[in-house]
Every structure is written in structure tokens, then in C-alpha cells.
């Protein structure tokens, strides 16, 4: 029942968004930023991952990106180089040395973390990004003008651009498998993972789960949930035997990334009062000085 409600909500949200998009009278953002209590999240337990990279393959399959054979993903040589998600792979796994046990390295999967207060949603000039009720932050190609401001704004440096396309270059990033989750399926990476590294569920429950695991096995985990509070919280959260910035993730502030710029923006444009006040002021000066120079001429 719950799911159906959510699905209906999507339809409604999409309809509202598309109406807003074509209506010039509507000064509201064409994007949405819903912070539902029921939003979903994923807990990534980096102590479990074995680096099989099946998630990389499944992700490409789910997003119509040439994926090749699953067997090819057993090639360990790719780990020699640190990789980032890009326009050809929306998620990648990197290998890190495990100082506690050199024989079993740490593997960390990276993708969009789906912020609760996404910088991309706030920054996008046309509102092409939306945060949906289920937590996913999704790009809309029918709006995007390709300005790449989202890439400037994102604190995790996640959105990527198809630089080598002259026509319809896309912003490529993980969309939390929104097409699959809408139909009640799991995200492709979560579903394929043989080690159950990832747990998909309501965000508050997976944070609870993370806390339980940490308190049950204090020797196995560093007591830190990456993404619980970073930039105001993300849908994807990580735990591991060290803090995540030891594994190539940026160390970030806890305040939401768009906070400062939005308050400045809204300050300058508070009900259009400052611009109108400035206009009136200049009009007054113009009138006064004009009168004076007319008098001088007489």
C-alpha cells in the first residue's frame, strides 16, 4: 500500500514539475526537493566488500551503458589506478591498503551519495535536478542546457559530462536506479552484490543498522557513519574500519552545501524589495539632480 502511494506521489510530483516547467507564471522552482521521512537509503559496509566489481557491471546493464562480459570484471589490474565514476561508469570500486591486515585490502564503492540537501538541485540554472520522495537525486535531460554548474557545485564531484558529444551531451551520474525502484525492484548494484555489502532500506533504519553494527563489533568498525551528517546528510552512508576520508572520500563540513548561497540569493531578492528599493532610490536621485540642472540652465 505504502509503495503504491509513493508511486502515485511520483506521478503527481512529475506532473506538477512538468506543469511548472512550461508555465512562465509560476515563479517556483521547476525542480523538486522533497525530504520525506520515508526516504530510502543504502548502508555500504566497506569491511565486507571483496572487490568483485559485479556492481559496476550491473549498473551499466541497468543504465544502457556498454557493459561487456561479467567475467571481464574479475581483472584485478584496474585497481592499480584510483578511479572515479565518470560518463561511462556511474559506480566504480577502488582498492585501498588495509593497514590492520595487509592480506585483505579494503574495497570502497563510489557513486552519487544522493544528498538530502543537494548542491546540484540548488545550483542548476533550469532546475533539471530533483530530489524525489524516495531519496533519489535525478537529472532531467529534457531541461538541462549543459552548463555544468552542477559539477562546480557538487561537494563529492559526482556529476560528469559527455565532453565528446556535440549533440545532446548528457550529465551522467547514479540515479539510485529510480526506474527499477519505481517498479519495486532493488537498485541494480544492491541486487547483484554477492556479499550483501549494501543494505537498502528507509534511511533512518539503515542508520540505526549502522549504529548497531558499530556497537556490536567495535573492533571491526571505526565509530563513524560517513554521510549521516556530511553536508546535511546523504541517502548513501558508509561504515568501515577507518574514517572514509582515508579511503578517498572528501572530508566535508556538516552544513548543507547550498545553505550560504541560497540565503544570499534570497536576501538579495527578498520579495523583490531590494531591487525595487534601489530602483526607487535611483529614480529619486535622477529626479532631484534633473531639477537642479534644469534650474542651473535657467
Amino acid at each position: 500500500m505504502n509503495k503504491i502511494n509513493r508511486r502515485n506521489f511520483f506521478k503527481k510530483a512529475a506532473a506538477i514539475a512538468s506543469v511548472a516547467a512550461v508555465s512562465t507564471q509560476n515563479a517556483d522552482s521547476a525542480s523538486t526537493n522533497i525530504l520525506s521521512d520515508e526516504r530510502m537509503g543504502v548502508l555500504v559496509d566497506t569491511t565486507v566488500c571483496i572487490g568483485c566489481r559485479h556492481c559496476e557491471w550491473a549498473c551499466k546493464e541497468a543504465h544502457n551503458i556498454p557493459a561487456g562480459q561479467l567475467d571481464d570484471y574479475h581483472d584485478r589490474s584496474v585497481f592499480k589506478k584510483f578511479r572515479r565514476p565518470d560518463e561511462t561508469a556511474l559506480t566504480v570500486v577502488n582498492e585501498f591498503e588495509n593497514q590492520k591486515n595487509k592480506l585483505s585490502p579494503i574495497f570502497v564503492k563510489a557513486q552519487c551519495n544522493h544528498c538530502d540537501h543537494p548542491a546540484c538541485v540548488s545550483a542548476c540554472i533550469v532546475g533539471a535536478f530533483s530530489k524525489f520522495e524516495n531519496g533519489s537525486v535525478v537529472w532531467d535531460g529534457s531541461k538541462c542546457i549543459g552548463c555544468r554548474y552542477c559539477m562546480v557545485a557538487c561537494p563529492f564531484q559526482v556529476p560528469t559530462f559527455e565532453y565528446n558529444k556535440a549533440i545532446e551531451p548528457r550529465i551522467m551520474k547514479c540515479d539510485f536506479c529510480i526506474e527499477r525502484t519505481k517498479q519495486g525492484m532493488l537498485p541494480a548494484c544492491v541486487e547483484i552484490c554477492p556479499m550483501e555489502v549494501m543494505t537498502y532500506g528507509p534511511r533512518n533504519e539503515i542508520i540505526q543498522l549502522a549504529k548497531e553494527r558499530i556497537s556490536l563489533y567495535p573492533n571491526r568498525y571505526e565509530n563513524y557513519i560517513y554521510g549521516e551528517k556530511e553536508v546535511g546528510g546523504t541517502s548513501w552512508v558508509y561504515i568501515g574500519n577507518k574514517k572514509m576520508w582515508e579511503f578517498g572520500m572528501p572530508k566535508l563540513k556538516l552544513s548543507p552545501a547550498p545553505g550560504v548561497s541560497e540565503s544570499i540569493q534570497h536576501g538579495i531578492f527578498a520579495y523583490f524589495v531590494p531591487p525595487i528599493a534601489l530602483y526607487s532610490l535611483l529614480g529619486g536621485i535622477m529626479w532631484l539632480t534633473k531639477k537642479r540642472s534644469d534650474l542651473e540652465e535657467e
Partner: peptide, 11 residues
């Protein structure tokens, strides 16, 4: 026609 008043770039 596609407005995002939160965006400095839009302004």
C-alpha cells in the same frame, strides 16, 4: 521558462 530561483546562475 524553466525557473530555479535558488540558483545564482539562473539570476
Amino acid at each position: 521558462i524553466m525557473w530555479n530561483p535558488n540558483s545564482a546562475l539562473f539570476e
